[in-house]
């Protein structure tokens, strides 16, 4: 399989600030990659370098088999983090202008624009000025502008921010659709649960460095927390019995459950049946690592420090805000 994007040793500084520090990565064609990391991690800078909007200080970069995106701009669709439209321009004209700039022929362009507007339930805005649209509508128009020319590589920088749940689902369907058609999709988000829902491959960036580059399944296996969540009938007293089991290292309460941390060398499946035999339970499940957990573990080196708590708090805050915004 050929690579849609490959970078090696790419570094970018702004004055004294190092934004991206020696990133190597390859993104095969037809895959769906997620760039995750907190705000200011270097995601947008990396994406801008892939787009050849910024140029790396050093390192090799190739996009769709070309030395830089400059030569393959027309095959790339890009939705920048900062949404931008011409306020005074009509939606139809704006999309046609973008289509023409992306090398589309003016013939049939009008129909193509109308079809896309139809698909995102915006067929009535064709003649409206961009400034008359709501923020969510503008975002959908922007999305159309990035996929209108049927690109092979689609790069979406924080595509979901500011969308309501209905439109978020619509956008996800559209992205999935593009992926199914064999397009390479890269998108970035600071809200990790979104990445978990969509991507099959995750690249995690922290302080300008790539800290993780793996499929979601592999990440889950590798970062198996070896923990089981239980909700015992009988509460605290029952929990004491479980803590006596040889496979159990210790317990600690988490939100609406008790987390059972297993000792090294015990199989998770065996431990579950042992726990079930020891005590009747309302609920038992293997704890799946969330990307947040993985991220925190990577960043803090597995130590539960105050820094880690803080980081988790900021990540959670990000998630919460996003959820609140969605509801």
């Amino acid at each position: 399989m050929t690579n849609a994007v490959s970078m090696s040793g790419v570094r970018k500084t702004f004055g004294r600030k190092v934004a991206v520090e020696g990133i190597d990565l390859t993104i095969p064609e037809g895959s769906m990659y997620g760039f995750i990391g907190p705000n200011g991690a270097g995601k947008t800078t990396t994406i801008r370098m892939i787009m050849s909007i910024l140029f790396p200080d050093c390192g090799e970069l190739s996009v769709l088999g070309k030395k830089s995106a400059v030569e393959s701009k027309d095959q790339i669709g890009y939705l920048p983090e900062e949404r931008g439209i011409y306020k005074k321009m009509k939606v139809g004209s704006f999309l046609k202008h973008m289509g023409r700039l992306k090398g589309l022929d003016s013939r049939g362009l009008d129909n193509r624009v109308k079809e896309w507007l139809d698909r995102v339930d915006l067929n009535e805005v064709y003649k409206k000025k961009c400034e008359e649209l709501s923020k969510g509508m503008q975002q959908k128009v922007q999305f159309i502008a990035s996929v209108l020319h049927d690109p092979d590589l689609i790069i979406l920088d924080e595509p979901f921010s500011g969308l309501d749940p209905v439109n978020m689902r619509l956008l996800r369907t559209l992205i999935d659709e593009q992926h199914t058609q064999g397009k390479t999709v890269i998108f970035s988000t600071h809200v990790m649960f979104q990445a978990e829902k969509i991507c099959d491959h995750i690249i995690m960036i922290h302080e300008g460095k790539k800290v993780l580059d793996d499929t979601l399944d592999d990440i889950r296996t590798r970062f198996d927390p070896r923990a089981i969540h239980i909700d015992p009938i009988g509460g605290e007293i029952a929990a004491n019995i479980i803590s006596q089991l040889p496979c159990v290292s210790h317990l600690h309460p988490v939100e609406s459950a008790i987390e059972v941390i297993l000792n090294e060398g015990f199989d998770t499946q065996d431990a579950m049946s042992a726990i079930l035999q020891a005590q009747p339970l309302n609920r038992i499940e293997i704890k799946k690592p969330t990307l947040e957990d993985v991220f925190i573990e990577i960043v803090t080196g597995g130590e539960k420090s105050e820094d880690a708590q803080e980081l988790r708090a900021t990540l959670l805050a990000g998630t919460k805000n996003e959820e609140e915004a969605s509801s």
Binding site: M51, V70, Y78, P80, G84, M98, K102, A145, S146
Partner: peptide, 16 residues
């Protein structure tokens, strides 16, 4: 206007 609208980044994805 293009700069403050942030439309410039969209444009830069299509033209140099």
């Amino acid at each position: 206007e293009e700069k403050s609208n942030r439309v410039v980044e969209v444009l830069l994805s299509a033209v140099s």
